[in-house]
Design a protein around this nucleic acid. Structure first.
Ligand code: ATP
Length: 694
DNA sequence: TGCCACGCTGTTTTT
DNA sequence: CAGCGTGGCA
């Protein structure tokens, strides 16, 4: 077979397609290459693409895998293959099968913000302060629980929680009842519910087992027990399961990933073939030595060999700056220099950091020097209010039981249905619900109440005729666009008309934004329309996409238009998102205690030792992204909430052997030091001279 | 209903 | 510090 080489161990793994297979190896040893070649090999053996499932953990790495494969076999050969994240796979199954659990068809996927709202309303029902939700870290715990594949009562009783086990279970149950009544699921349900369906309805599972025959999981060290359960049920007795991973790169323990799953794979599958890859093909030997030295400080590791194959390469550079702004300036300068003088492309650089907000300074400086760049993930487009509002419209149109979205848009743009009216409608709904319960009918939801009130003027006193007609018009509006969207051949033009009809522009002006802001916000709305158009034109399925498909795509954060030309831009991303990727030149930034390792990840962990080791693995991941050149940068101070804080250099820097490092200090205090040194030198010279002359 | 001013809050990491 | 939301006032 043509294409790039494989070493004998890789080839062995590629050719082993039946039965369980574990590829256990360090960073940059060609694990992902095995997966892509294995798929290529399977296709060449006549295995249908629709039988193959290749799963990864982040959208970025799933996309990367897809790109590599497209280059090898072309897009056409990949048709029907599942090449996605676990969550996207779960969503795909749920989309077809969720009815069996008593949900209605287009369900909503709640994002974490909506989830918070839901908890808040539960707390209000319990006569508790809704602000307490976050303090109790309820969403986080519930998620952790759902990722553990344990019954929630057992889970709650098996650990110490910030709240009592009873209270946790109460909220847990109410939360899920609410979700169900909204006809909505949360992220974890995308994994959990398919698993439940398979357990309760073997005939459905059978269908999927016949369809999916070969499984490959990249970054398997980050699997959580619930995902593993889903995987095990799908894999069935054929056990054509290939998992690939590296315990040293397990960085999602905090959200329930269990590295024990990969460590015990051999126990679960005694007949598994094990392949170890011991050559690193990615990084220069200096970079690899640094990585190995850092990770050697961890205690809980599985023995593993990783030898360099590349050149010794440049020294690593350690750069100290005064503050984050200067840190960013130095980085941007270096990039500019290397683009101009070393003929490197912007896309050859990655700037990695621990937390999203750190991207800000770098964005600013790169913009100043007009260096094309792209921030991966982070808070952005979909968090904007106007975008959320518009999406809420689409959600209600797709799933009118989505009360959270409904309440969001009921009075946006303003139609005179304020808080007071909502209360009254709520009370009315309560009555309707009791009647329905008494007569054994389906429980009405908020939208039903609106329909009733809107079509029967005078039904409730206290809601004046003007508001009744506003409610009527709102209901009509939703129904009209529901029809339009389901009838239209293309969705994007409908959305465009809808935006116009809602007259957002007027609303934005009323909200007091100046002309530029209004234009920017309108632009965001049309950007969403563009995304929808793009989404439609890239749709590969035979049945055309519906609103639901678009919404699901957005919820999964998997929109793929943001990587339109990643090659031409400097990539800014968190260390977590960098896993599985590689770049010729990498900047590991913010290397200060408190930032990295992150203060809270350790202080808020129930096992600080383990948390620190996870941070260190994150550092190992960061270092091993670099192929040719690694810069480590830090600053002496950092502004936080307007205050300047002093920061110590990260302990991870001390773990890198000194002889691999070139140090460069740009900080003011260092400059001052140097000046002082020079002054003293000058003084002693002067004294000596004086002595001589005397 | 509309405008401004004050004051509060925010920084893990992802799907 | 900055961005947002609330609330007071006209
Ligand atoms: N046999 C080989 N010969 C030469 N280069 C190889 C070989 N196998 C892989 N590579 C190259 O090495 C680099 C790392 O490979 P790959 O991304 O598959 O590693 P990985 O083990 O998945 O890394 P990570 O654990 O960091 O995700 C890639 O640039 C790949 O093209």
């Amino acid at each position: 077979m043509s294409g790039p080489r494989l070493n004998p161990h890789q080839a062995e793994a590629v050719n082993h397609i039946d039965g369980p297979l574990l590829i256990f190896a360090g960073a940059g040893s060609g694990k992902t290459r095995v997966i892509t070649h294995r798929i290529q090999y399977m296709l060449s053996k006549g295995i249908a693409s629709s039988c193959i499932v290749a799963v990864s953990f982040t959208n970025k790495s799933a996309r990367e895998m897809k790109h590599r494969l497209q280059k090898m076999v072309g897009s056409k050969a990949l048709r029907g293959m599942v090449l996605s994240t676990f969550h996207a796979l779960g969503n795909r199954i749920l989309q077809k099968e969720i009815r069996i659990l008593g949900y209605r068809d287009p369900f909503s996927i709640l994002d974490s913000d909506d989830g918070l709202q839901l908890y808040a309303s539960i707390y209000r029902d319990l006569k508790l302060d809704p602000d307490q939700v976050k303090e109790d870290s309820m969403p986080f715990m519930v998620s952790l629980c759902k990722n553990s594949n344990m019954h929630h009562e057992d889970w709650a009783n098996s650990r110490s929680l910030p709240v009592s086990a009873n209270f946790f279970c109460d909220v847990f149950e109410r939360y899920h009842a609410s979700l169900k009544s909204l006809n909505a699921v949360d992220f974890d349900d995308l994994i959990l519910l398919p698993s439940r369906i398979f357990k309760e309805h073997p005939e459905v599972l059978e269908k999927y087992r016949r369809r999916f025959r070969y499984f490959m999981i990249d970054e398997f060290q980050d699997t959580n027990p619930t995902q593993y359960e889903l995987l095990l049920s799908l894999v069935g007795d054929e056990k054509n399961l290939c998992v690939v991973g590296d315990d040293d790169q397990s960085i999602y323990g905090w959200r329930g990933a269990d590295v024990g799953i990969i460590q015990n794979f051999q126990t679960d599958f005694p007949q598994a073939k094990i392949v170890r890859l011991e050559h690193n093909y990615r990084s220069s030997s200096r970079i690899l030595s640094a990585a190995n030295a850092v990770i050697a400080n961890n205690s809980k590791r599985v023995q593993k060999i990783l030898r360099a194959t590349g050149e010794e390469g440049e020294q690593l550079s350690l750069i100290m700056a005064e503050d984050e702004e200067q840190e960013a300036m130095v980085v941007a300068d270096i990039i500019q220099n290397r683009i101009i003088h070393a003929a490197q492309n912007p896309g050859d650089f990655a700037i990695l950091y621990r937390t999203n907000f750190q991207s800000r300074a770098f964005e600013q400086e790169l913009r100043k020097l007009q260096i094309p760049h792209h921030v991966v993930g982070g808070y952005k487009f979909f968090d904007r209010k106007e975008v959320k509002d518009l999406l809420a419209y689409l959600r209600v149109i797709a799933n009118r039981s989505d009360e959270i979205s409904l309440l969001r848009i009921l009075n946006r743009p303003r139609r005179g249905i304020g808080e007071g009216s909502v209360q009254k409608i709520g009370a009315f709904l309560q009555n309707m619900a009791e009647e329905a319960d008494a007569s054994g009918m389906r429980r009405p939801d908020f939208f039903h109440a609106l329909e009733r009130i809107g079509s029967t003027p005078g039904l409730i006193q206290g809601i004046p005729a003007k508001q009744v007609s506003a409610i009527y018009e709102f209901v009509e509006f939703i129904e009209k666009y529901k029809k339009e969207f389901s009838r239209a051949r293309k969705l994007a033009p409908v959305l465009s008309t809808m935006i116009q009809e809602l007259n957002w522009e007027h609303e934005f002006m009323r909200e007091g934004s100046d002309e530029n802001a209004v234009r920017a916000r309108m632009l965001n709305l049309s950007e969403l329309t563009n995304m929808l158009a793009f989404f439609e034109s890239n749709w590969e399925d035979s049945t055309p996409p519906g609103l639901f498909d678009f919404l699901a795509r957005i919820s999964l954060q998997a929109s793929d238009e943001d990587d339109d030309n990643p090659r031409g831009r400097v990539q800014l991303l968190t260390l977590h998102l960098s896993k599985g990727l590689e770049f010729p030149t990498v900047f590991l930034t913010g290397m200060m205690e408190g930032i990295f390792p992150g203060e809270r990840s350790i202080s808020e962990s129930e096992n600080p030792e383990a948390a620190l080791e996870e941070e260190r693995r994150l550092c190992y991941v960061g270092i091993t992204r670099a192929m040719k050149k690694l810069f480590l940068t830090a600053s002496r101070t950092r502004r936080r909430f307007g205050e300047t804080e002093e920061k110590e250099p990260s302990r991870f820097l001390d773990e890198i052997p000194e002889e691999l490092l070139d140090r460069e200090d740009h900080s003011v205090s260092q400059m001052a030091e140097r000046k002082k040194d020079e002054m003293e030198e000058w003084l002693t010279d002067l004294r000596n001279n004086l002595k001589v002359s005397i």
